[in-house]
Amino acid sequence: MSDKILEIENLSVSFEGFKALNQLNFSMDTGELRVIIGPNGAGKTTFLDVITGKVQPTEGRALFKGKNLRSKSEHKISRLGIGRKFQTPRVYLKLTPRENLDLSCNRHKNVLATLLGRPSKTEQRTVAGLLETIGLSTKADLSAELLSHGEKQRLEIGMLVAQSPDLLLVDEPVAGLTDEETENVGNLLLTLAASHSIIVIEHDMEFVRQIARQVTVLHQGSVLCEGTMDEVQTNPQVIEVYLGQPEESDA
């Protein structure tokens, strides 16, 4: 029980009657790297929305390290140790990569401490180290709006890590990247997996094969199956969902 970092029980979310998540059950061990796949509209992003407090579940509950996340606001959940990367990169464009990382790195995020405190030596070193890790040292003091799409993706992953969360939620980190950048991000995630629990959502099967150990398939708001990449790929239900998608696209 205690070594589960995330437990989701009978979770449902409906948007005006439409069930984006439907009686979803899911659990994940501490230290695990889990990949979630599923067709468009399966509810993957909504799943992250619930965990991070953006959307309230209609039914069921989500437990993080045994704590119920219901009706906690986004910043409280983040402070508990959950970091999230969005489907399209969301970094602060008018700030530099260094400033982006520094804001995430700040240990005390209430008004007074931020106003009166200065970045500590350790924090400055963390930021410099992270810039190195995500390969943006030379562009550390450029405005982030000048970064390429791939660099923004890496910067946002860096921002997650700077928060030093226990659980990283990464939504489509390689969408729109070149093969080379995809591999970079893959290696970055594998490195991070050594010290964090990570959920990665991805469509790119090549990439999934590169990083995946355990794969969960979502379909129409619930878990269709779970297993290693090979097991999942040979599962008849999964094949049907992916191949038969055009016929049931209104689901």
């Binding site: 606001s73 986004e74 910043h75 983040s78 402070r79 970091g83 995430s104 995020k109 921002m159 928060q163």
Partner: peptide, 9 residues
């Protein structure tokens, strides 16, 4: 809203 997910209110 991004700021919230970084842990700031």
């Amino acid at each position: 809203s991004r700021v919230r997910f970084s842990g700031y209110d």
